[in-house]
Computed example of a mutant assay.
Amino acid sequence: MTASSKGRVKLFGFWVICADMAAQYTVPDPTTPAKMYMTYQGLASYLSSGGDNYWVIDTDYDNYAITYACRSLKEDGSCDDGYSLIFSRNPRGLPPAIQRIVRQKQEEICMSGQFQPVLQSGAC
């Protein structure tokens, strides 16, 4: 699977640019399709490139998907540097009933209150 994303990012703590990223996902173990490896690269030299372990935590296939990625592991195998994203099929966000489900999942993965909405205006 491949994906692309474009949007505004802040580099070096002050420089705001319109980023263009590409990613390719592979499934190392077909018996666990929710666990993938994401290889990504910025389409400009100053954007980062690398690879993350990537999991789909929960989805209803129609409204949302909660994902978690780990950039680096500690010696004990736990995540040292991770992030989570919530995807919505509706650019205006999730309906209240789905928001409650997503908030419960955020609690379960110990990331409650750590998400920020991203406006889908098409502008960078």
Rank of each mutant, 00 (worst) to 15 (best):
T2Q: 13
T2W: 09
T2R: 14
A3D: 02
S4T: 11
S4W: 08
S5I: 09
K6C: 12
V9K: 01
V9L: 01
V9Q: 00
L11S: 01
F12D: 15
F12T: 08
W15N: 06
W15M: 04
V16A: 02
I17M: 03
A19L: 01
A19K: 00
D20Y: 09
D20S: 12
M21L: 12
M21D: 09
A23S: 11
A23V: 01
Q24L: 04
Y25T: 05
Y25P: 01
T26R: 10
V27Y: 06
V27Q: 14
P30K: 13
P30T: 10
T31F: 05
T32R: 14
P33M: 11
A34H: 15
A34W: 12
K35W: 09
K35I: 09
M36A: 12
T39H: 11
Y40W: 03
G42P: 02
A44W: 08
S45K: 07
S45T: 08
Y46K: 09
Y46G: 04
L47W: 00
S48L: 02
S49Y: 10
G50T: 06
G51Y: 04
Y54I: 02
W55C: 04
W55T: 08
V56E: 04
I57W: 00
D58C: 10
D60T: 12
Y61M: 05
Y61G: 02
Y61S: 05
D62P: 00
N63P: 00
N63K: 15
Y64S: 00
Y68S: 07
C70M: 09
R71Q: 13
R71M: 12
S72D: 11
L73Q: 07
K74F: 06
K74M: 07
E75S: 11
E75Y: 07
E75A: 13
D76S: 03
D76V: 00
D76T: 02
S78T: 08
C79R: 01
D80E: 14
D81E: 10
D81S: 02
G82M: 08
G82F: 06
L85V: 14
L85R: 00
I86V: 15
R89M: 12
P91L: 04
P91W: 01
R92F: 03
P95V: 05
P96V: 15
P96S: 09
P96Q: 07
A97C: 08
I98Y: 04
I101P: 02
I101L: 11
V102H: 02
R103T: 10
I109A: 10
I109P: 03
I109E: 04
C110F: 15
S112G: 13
G113M: 14
G113L: 15
G113N: 14
P117Y: 05
L119E: 11
G122P: 06
A123V: 06
C124G: 11
C124A: 09
